[in-house]
């Protein structure tokens, strides 16, 4: 189910050239802001939770998910080179699983590690906040990767739709409209952060940890499975008309 060559190609496509700047820009920004806030405000649990939720989980994690998830497959479909990959004697689900694993790996590394570092910079992991947010963003990254990989196989406008979903739904609707929160990857990830973090640190989620993890697993598996199905019947189209 895992093909090292496909994985290597995907990995090089993801971290090649300009994408690596795009991927590392946001985590660097988070760390810089964290350092600035620590220097001016000092260690404070509420501020830490506020910043890591508002900028970290609501903005950075979905964006990295979009870049890694769609970047793993969408460019190949767009420029038609996916045909050469599909022509190899590999099962389509194998291709998807390999690409998904790479996308998950890349997005987890680029979200969980900076979140952990930012957490330590901001308040030295007091109240287990750094660990909590690192776990939350790692889990959310897994689901986002599967979701956006699926999106990459379904539509040629994967990046646009993914960004709209990530920024409008997750960051705006998911933070404001109470009912929509239950259907937001961000909240599922935060459910575990709420469990890990000490009480009274201001980390809250609208779903329970068990439900959150179950939903994350369901979305990831379904997304991967459906992307595999989709790749079977993929008909490459010409470029933008």
């Amino acid at each position: 189910m895992f093909d090292p060559t496909v994985a290597r190609l995907t990995y090089r496509g993801l971290l090649g050239r300009r994408r690596v700047f795009l991927l590392s820009g946001l985590p660097l920004l988070l760390l810089v802001i964290a350092a600035l806030v620590r220097a001016t405000v000092g260690a404070d649990d509420a501020v830490t939770a506020n910043l890591l939720t508002g900028f970290g989980v609501a903005t950075m994690v979905p964006l990295i998910g979009v870049i890694a998830g769609t970047g793993a497959i969408a460019p190949e479909i767009e420029d038609g080179s996916v045909l050469y990959l599909l022509a190899k004697p590999l099962k389509r689900p194998t291709i998807i699983v390999s690409k998904l694993i790479v996308a998950i790996g890349v997005s987890v590394v680029f979200t969980a590690v900076p979140m952990l570092l930012a957490g330590f910079v901001l308040n030295g992991n007091s109240g287990q906040l750094a660990v909590a947010f690192a776990v939350a963003s790692a889990l959310a990254s897994v689901a986002y990767s599967a979701l956006f990989l699926l999106l990459g196989t379904v539509t040629r406008h994967a990046v646009v739709i993914g960004l709209v979903y990530a920024l409008i739904w997750e960051a705006l609707v998911g933070s404001v409209v109470p009912g929509a929160r239950v259907l937001s990857v961000q909240q599922w990830g935060l459910s575990l952060a709420e469990r890990i973090a000490a009480d009274g640190t201001g980390v809250s989620s609208s779903v329970g940890p068990v439900a959150g993890v179950v939903l994350l697993v369901v979305v990831t598996v379904l997304g991967g499975w459906f992307a595999g199905r989709k790749l079977r019947t993929l008909s490459p189209q010409a470029g933008e008309a």
Partner: peptide
């Protein structure tokens, strides 16, 4: 694709960043 992503990121990421930082300043 890069253009679309770049434009959206340029408008939204700074905005969320500013909102988060202003929230912190307000708390302080």
């Amino acid at each position: 694709g890069f253009g679309v992503a770049g434009v959206i990121v340029a408008f939204t990421v700074p905005y969320f960043l500013v909102s988060a930082l202003q929230g912190i300043a307000w708390d302080q």
